[in-house]
């Protein structure tokens, strides 16, 4: 069952950057990718808990700001040779508003 929750206006996320969303105890990083696509993952690198929202976006990947692990935002998988994955959250944009599904 979907549980879409409004997060912010798309414009409130600068292009090719991210915002952090605090939902309960969980910190989520919401990224605005090329073509105004939005992806959301838990803001916590599987390596040493780096805040992913501060990293550099490379295509559909985020490079963790602490030690440059590369994480695919679509499925949360860490790129080889490292291993791990981060929780992802479905997103949608309707009328310029970003929604997350919990």
């Amino acid at each position: 069952m979907s549980n879409w929750i409004k997060v912010c206006q798309l414009d409130e996320i600068p292009p090719a950057q991210a915002r952090t969303v605090k939902a309960g105890d969980v910190m989520i990083a919401v990224f605005r990718l090329t073509g105004d696509r939005v992806k959301a993952v838990e803001n916590r690198c599987p390596h040493k808990h780096g805040p992913l929202a501060e990293g550099i976006i490379s295509g559909d990947d985020i490079l963790c700001p602490l030690h440059n692990w590369r994480i695919h935002l679509e499925d949360g998988q860490v790129a080889a040779p490292d291993k791990g994955c981060v929780k992802t959250y479905p997103t949608k944009i309707e009328n310029g508003v970003v929604f997350l599904d919990f």
């Binding site: 929750i5 997060v7 912010c8 409130e12 996320i13 600068p14 950057q17 991210a18 915002r19 952090t20 969303v21 605090k22 939902a23 309960g24 105890d25 969980v26 919401v30 838990e42 929202a53 929780k87 997350l100 919990f102």
Partner: peptide, 18 residues
């Protein structure tokens, strides 16, 4: 305006972590 990412967006709900 430009650096809105300094500000957190807070959504007042509990999220279960799987």
């Amino acid at each position: 305006q430009q650096f809105s990412e300094y500000k957190q967006i807070v959504i007042p709900i509990e999220v279960e972590l799987s």
